[in-house]
Write a protein that binds this DNA or RNA. Structure first.
Lengths: 195, 195
DNA sequence: ATGTATGCCTAAGCCCTTTAGGCAACCGAG
DNA sequence: CTCGGTTGCCTAAAGGGCTTAGGCATACAT
């Protein structure tokens, strides 16, 4: 019988494609074996288990997004950089919904520390150098940006904005306008409510 | 053999508890049957299938959060209301992580339309009456707030802020300060980048 | 008290996961 | 070019979750 040429890398790539086609949580060892025209047990020589497979897909997605982000940020600063980075995440999620979902997988701390996640954090911080924020406000802003990007993209991907006006693209643009404005006028703590 | 007294409501409540204890995606018909000291097949007289069970848990969580939110908003406006509503989501997620995860389940459009999700949207809109936003900016702001709340809480729940300074509570407070400031100084579209 | 409806049961089929062990294809050494 | 070892994919099997079909006993109404 001819050999299929399985490798951890190939399984990861096929798994990523599968995720985009049928959803990350439908990516099972069985489904991947079917796609590779191979028996399920054969996967276990290349991948420890199902969790391992999913982790590899997550790491691939994080890398791909980080590469795109690095490209997008090159030569840009200020609002240009903000918009470029934000669009990297949104566009990636729209092009590769399964991979994007994979990237949200909770990694154990050491895996996370060795992942492209740290590049993402560094890039967001670099982006903020275009605004005038000192620590600890810079960290707060990193967290806020991450929350908005992920929250917006997750909701949009889930169809949360589908059946209402105005369309999502418009809200996205205005959200980025608002974030840029916010970063340029970042408030001091504990403001009084002016109503 | 004594009857266990199963009902859809009781299964939903036990399922919600189970979700908080072992995680929403571990909530399986089998696990729930074990917890209720009943055979798996017995559940199927009360619940259509596993998906139905999970949907019911999601709807319960949305209701509980909406009730808390309504309480929190009563008699408050402006930043007070903003902070109160935001804390409802965050506190609920910390007290009931499994239920909070359930609330993120994608519902089909008609189920969603009949769910407490619409109360959430209405309350966010009501909150914004304390700020001076006309349509369509109000809708953009509703979407932004939802994105931040969900994005922040999801990341925090996933341990994303655990191993870095300053602590998450601090960033949360400053995020709410920032959002209040943003809503009071909401920018016009298509700003030039001054950065 | 008895008939009926209901509630939980057993049984069974299907799919996914994972491990153990076997056979054949490939590869390097003579 | 053949032969031995290694590697790659296989079959087999056990365990668990989902779901349906059909049975029996409990609870309730008359």
């Amino acid at each position: 019988m001819a050999r299929a040429g399985l490798t951890p890398e190939r399984l990861t790539r096929e798994g990523a494609k599968l995720a985009d086609e049928i959803g990350f949580d439908q990516v099972t060892a069985s489904a991947l074996a079917r796609r590779c025209d191979v028996r399920v047990a054969s996967l276990y020589s290349h991948v420890r288990n199902s969790r391992d497979l999913r982790t590899r897909i997550a790491l691939l997605a994080l890398e791909e997004m980080a590469d795109r982000a690095a490209d997008a940020l090159a030569g840009r600063s200020g609002k240009d950089a903000l918009v470029a980075l934000a669009n990297v995440y949104r566009d990636y999620a729209r092009e590769h919904p399964g991979r994007y979902a994979a990237a949200q997988l909770r990694l154990d701390p050491e895996t996370a520390a060795a992942s492209a996640g740290v590049r993402h954090a560094r890039m967001t911080r670099a982006l903020l150098r275009g605004y005038d924020l000192d620590e600890p406000d810079q960290t707060h802003a990193v967290r806020l940006l991450g929350s908005v990007f992920h929250g917006y993209v997750a909701t949009e991907l889930g169809g949360g904005f589908d059946h209402s006006e105005p369309d999502s693209q418009e809200s996205w643009s205005r959200t980025l306008d608002a974030l840029d404005h916010l970063l340029r006028t970042w408030p001091a703590p504990n403001e009084t409510n002016h109503g």
